[in-house]
Design a protein around this nucleic acid. Structure first.
Lengths: 343, 343
DNA sequence: CAATTTATAGAAAACCTTTTCTATCAAGGA
DNA sequence: TCCTTGATAGAAAAGGTTTTCTATAAATTG
């Protein structure tokens, strides 16, 4: 027989469709005897309720969408795993959407998810433009939505963030405590999180009365993965060819950190003896590199879990207002930093 | 107004529901004039057909499921990306299921996907047990199914595979051509793909009349990512403490390859001068390591794309028989191998 | 000109549930 | 005894489509 329906079960058990539904959903009193008959029938026919029919009438599909810039980035899979964990626990399924980091694709993927009638959407690293232009504020009115690691002041939406300010502060204060007073800053263009770090860079140096040198701000194009390493190598090499070189470099992510180390190695500059390097993100390559890269951990896995929990909570209790959750960061001290030789 | 339905469109356009449906699906002649009226109505009301209702009646949900052992593994996201690419092109959505490598979870996830009525399922690195015990053979009868990088002779199912035999052969022949005659083999337990490589190891050495030493077969527990590196370091260190050490090591994946290099470094053994290392998989860490790891590329991205294409093809033309597609591998020569000092 | 075909479009059934409304029977209260 | 209440269960509507079946008018055929 093809898939049995609730009607088959009803006939088999000698009761009405309604009664079977009530047994399944356990939302109405049914006499114990009847319940047993129905349950036997369900087992005998191996009946499984049709998800589509159920969702069509009820409001929920028990499905959420995750929009991610690129699943091959080392960073995002960990977040996704955290999300998956929470969702599978609560029997939610997960649509994965990869945007290749494209602003427009983010919007079309959102549209797709709405058409698939997901119960909620998570966006990892949303494009700044889409937050700023109100796209996500509008979307949040249509569907439970949580933005992960993207933020814009004044936008009414749910956010879960790593504390970029804290992380940058931890990295810089660490270098300064080691005695560094000539610290370069390496970032890529067009990133809100790097803007924050740059801001903290200025503030922290100022606070410690360390003069800021223009040539210590290194900006590269944004690429991903190995691209970034290459771009960083070039930029850092250029900088290290100058007469006075910094004693430390704060790289905005670990790829760049690896790039710094490779550039230094090429030029015969020893790390950490001649140059300290600190990265950001604590992705797996920071543990593989030689020497192992000191970095700031964002705890991606928790980020994913917290976001998913928030989303499912919103789905369950739709009335509450918007939340902004900020997770703290941890300095991971490894082998790429030391005190400068001549203070 | 709440979401407009096809009935709203019909009323607005002054036609019947049937006609609207026909315009949308373009599967029945409609007078040009009428068609235009309907199209205007659709635009005016911003009508989008309800996916659930559509799927309930039609046979297709335009959704597939992907079961993956762990999305945080460096290996799998690339495959998933390839799958995503093909699917989004054909307007298919993608359920992501992570099993944490658990045999049982693989089965329950499959069950979930069946209940969500996906049109097909892809399984990356299926557990050997589930292939062997017939679980997937049975599943293939219920739903279009493609197994990626897992195989068992005699099982009636669709497979897409990397040519493990070719890859292992490429690695070993390369080492032998460099002049190595004392080659160790490093693998983890319980993996079909490592079984194949071990088999090729024996055959190839035999072919070249190289004696096989028992102490050159190193077997570690299976872990993932950094765990594997640690386990490899321990095993390799133990081996390198012996009197006679091999001139080369073939590691079954890049994590192990990195482990070999780190073990050697700890013991003051220079790579590649004193010991050549070759890895497998060409994951990103092989390009980050110092020196860069020579390895075998499996072209994960193509693997994902080929699998998705096959699956969508099967979904469209359900009558065809089972296929086994084998993709070739490429030796990626980097800096971790050279000729042995004293042949 | 009658009969048949063709083009077009609507009514209603089907897909499989959930939920509201209605019905039955027994027990309890006046 | 009659009415109300409570427990249980069925009939039917609703959810939004697609598809089959039927209907009408116009066009073609003999």
């Amino acid at each position: 027989m093809e898939k049995p329906t609730i009607a088959d079960v009803a006939k088999y058990a000698g009761v009405s469709i309604t009664t079977v539904s009530r047994v399944i959903n356990n939302n109405y009193p049914v006499k114990e005897e009847t319940r047993q008959k129905v349950e036997e029938a369900i087992k005998a026919l191996n009946f499984k309720p049709n998800y589509l029919a159920r969702s069509l009438i009820g409001k929920s599909t028990h499905t959420i969408g995750v929009i991610v810039p690129s699943i091959t980035n080392l960073f995002f899979p960990v977040v996704v795993k955290g999300i998956e964990k929470v969702c599978s626990q609560k029997a939610f399924s997960l649509f994965l959407c990869d945007t290749d980091g494209k602003e427009e694709s983010e919007r079309t993927q959102m549209q797709n998810l709405l058409e698939k009638q997901v119960d909620g959407v998570l966006v990892i690293d949303p494009r700044y433009e889409n937050i700023e232009n109100g796209f996500y504020e509008k979307s949040a009115k249509k569907i439970p939505l949580v933005l992960i690691n993207g933020y814009h002041r004044g936008i009414r939406c749910n956010f879960v963030l790593n504390d970029q300010e804290m992380g940058a502060l931890q990295a810089l204060e660490y270098l300064i405590k080691l005695g560094h007073r000539d610290i370069a800053f390496l970032r890529a263009k067009n990133s809100y999180s790097y803007d924050i770090k740059e801001q903290i860079y200025y503030e922290t140096l100022q606070k410690h009365q360390i003069p800021i040198k223009e040539e210590n701000i290194l900006v590269i194009e944004s690429g991903n993965g190995l691209e970034t390493v290459e771009l960083a190598i070039q930029a850092v090499q250029k900088r290290l060819e100058q007469k006075e070189i910094p004693t430390a470099i704060f790289a905005c992510n670990d790829w760049m950190g690896v790039g710094v180390m490779q550039a230094a190695k090429k030029m015969g500059i020893a790390i950490p003896k001649d140059l300290s390097v600190i990265g950001y993100d604590n992705i797996v390559i920071s543990e593989i590199s030689e020497p192992k890269l000191t970095t700031v951990d964002q705890n991606m896995y928790s980020l994913g879990k917290a976001s998913a929990k928030l989303l499912l909570d919103i789905i369950k209790h739709p009335t509450q207002g918007f939340q902004k959750i900020i997770l703290d960061t941890n300095l991971i001290v490894r082998d790429s930093c030391t005190s400068p030789k001549n203070k």
